[in-house]
Design a protein around this nucleic acid. Structure first.
Lengths: 203, 203
DNA sequence: TAGATTGTTAATCGATTAACAATC
DNA sequence: TAGATTGTTAATCGATTAACAATC
């Protein structure tokens, strides 16, 4: 699954370039992935090509979009309207393609009332009420780490079943809640690690 | 390696909580990782505890920081000062702890000249000159996808050896350049996938 | 047809975990 | 000492890749 989003993006690029059929080799080469890996991934999801031809690009894009659930719309709440929350709100706020930001929360009176498109930033106090009135599918968590667990608890309590977690907090206390982590700082750590070259033996 | 940043953050939390010694079990439980995994990870990097005691927290924090290369400072350039670039610039811009933003570039005349701390946004044209005068260790790439590869080429050409890539572009054309990817949209895709529940057989 | 490309089986590889003797 | 916790070996598990017959 991990690789599906990359496949999709590359397929879009091929499509834009006017390519009509793709082979697993083509796709693989462009992504530095083995062709056999791609075929295995696709067949796992019941997507098959034709020998000697490969896959029709429209067919494949459609299939991968379906696998990724992009044939549905998702209602999104941004929780925490700091700089990252703001960036994310605009990110998907403008085009309501698949992910539609419908609620934004923050504690800071200075930003409450501010609008992104048709959506106003509302006070965090209102979280439960507003979510009850207007449920969302995904909450994007960008609050300060100190309150992250507490806010996550409230979100889950309020019925949220998927959280995109941008805080460093560890969120594995919930059953049946999908958590996706995106700790931005960790990427810097990993680069630092590699630059520093702390390899005990290997390489 | 993947897990090291999480270990470190959890150790900080323990430290803050006043805990002085950690066992692999404690750490593991808090992160939903097997104790034996933790010991294996640490021993791989030559970090060992004491039987019946575990690890001294200060010792362990220090060790993990070293593994992650956090005993060094890294000079960072933010390339692309859109909303995400801006968020990241401030993220590490304020505290110059380990990652010190020293250069910011953008093409938009409206933001050129704007300052984050002591750093001014400079025109993208100046990229090569400025990097020559003031080399950085890490470039954070947050330009629009259409120009991402082109800009990345220029960065590598200008001597950058580590790129934190926030664009959807595929950057594997370079030898000896560390690339760390953080495609924010992919996380949404993965959540969508799970919500849509496209499981052919399993579960 | 010839041969490029498929889907799948079997082999390989690496990462995770269980088991356990060593030890503080 | 007794027993909690370690580091490591061996077993398990899952993911990747090579090999190849099937097929368009």
């Amino acid at each position: 699954m991990e690789r599906m989003p990359r496949y999709l993006m590359q397929l879009y690029r091929f499509k834009t370039a006017g390519i009509e059929q793709v082979s697993s080799q083509m796709l693989g080469d462009s992504l530095r992935v083995k062709d056999t890996q791609i075929r295995k991934d696709l067949s796992y999801f019941g997507v098959f090509g034709k020998a000697r031809y490969g896959y029709n690009i429209d067919f494949l894009i459609d299939a991968v979009e379906k696998i990724l659930g992009l044939n549905h719309q998702y209602r999104v709440a941004i929780v925490g309207f700091g700089r990252i929350g703001r960036a994310l709100a605009h990110y998907h706020g403008s085009d309501c393609h698949n992910f539609c930001v419908q609620l934004i929360f923050d504690t800071d009176p200075a930003v409450i009332g501010e609008a992104v498109g048709a959506v106003r930033v509302e006070p965090m106090d209102q979280l439960e009420q507003r979510l009850a009135a207007q449920p969302v599918d995904i909450a994007v968590l960008t609050v300060p780490e100190e309150v992250a667990v507490e806010v996550a608890d409230r979100l889950v309590q309020a019925g949220v079943r998927a959280i995109y977690n941008f805080t460093a907090a560890e969120l594995h206390r919930y059953r049946d809640v999908f958590i996706e982590n995106a700790q931005i700082a960790y990427g810097m750590f990993k680069l630092a690690h590699r630059i520093a070259g702390y390899w005990p033996r290997k390489r």
